[in-house]
């Protein structure tokens, strides 16, 4: 699709560049394709409506990630349980992987949301500790602690 309007065209380019990043955050944080679809729409429509200005592309990426994380937090806050619905299988998320990958990813999905956020940003998106801290609105030492705690839990789950 190629739109004539510059603003819509810019939005389309932004979506094409960051759709996997935003959608990945939403699926991992919410464990639901339908909720991830809603978050995806909300993030990019907010971007379109606010039209934030950035000096460098990296700032745009950070804005989109921060917005996605915050919207996911709102969705999770309203849930009965703060933890993952373990009945949601990977097949339902349309993720196919080998047994080893499945075990690790399933363990990540069972982490408490705060730990999952840090793990996703640092290990999935490759953000360093400072970037992860900025996105999450916490200090670098808090990020380190969350990652360390997450690693401990993941080790227990995948080895036990």
């Amino acid at each position: 699709m190629q739109n004539e309007e510059p603003d819509i065209r810019e939005l389309e380019e932004t979506i094409n560049r960051y759709k996997r990043t935003v959608y990945g955050i939403a699926v991992t944080q919410l464990n639901s394709r339908s909720e991830a679809d809603d978050v995806f729409q909300e993030v990019f429509l907010l971007y379109y409506q606010k039209k934030p200005e950035f000096d460098i592309e990296e700032q745009k990426r950070a804005w989109l990630i921060r917005t996605a994380v915050n919207i996911c937090r709102r969705y999770n806050f309203g849930k009965w349980s703060r933890y993952v619905d373990k009945t949601t299988e990977l097949e339902e998320l349309q993720i196919v992987c080998d047994p080893g990958d499945r075990e690790v990813y399933a363990a990540v999905r069972e982490l408490p949301p705060k730990l999952r956020e840090a793990v996703y940003l640092h290990h999935f998106l490759g953000m360093d500790l400072r970037e992860t801290a900025d996105i999450l609105g916490i200090g670098v030492s808090a990020v380190s602690m969350r990652l360390s705690k997450a690693r401990g839990l993941l080790q227990n789950k995948t080895e036990g």
Partner: peptide, 25 residues
Amino acid sequence: SEIFARIESQLEPDDELTARVLAEA
């Protein structure tokens, strides 16, 4: 990170979703 990279490659929204956002915009 390698496991995540393999899984992330599957976390892609439908094209229809992008079309819906553009239509709403």
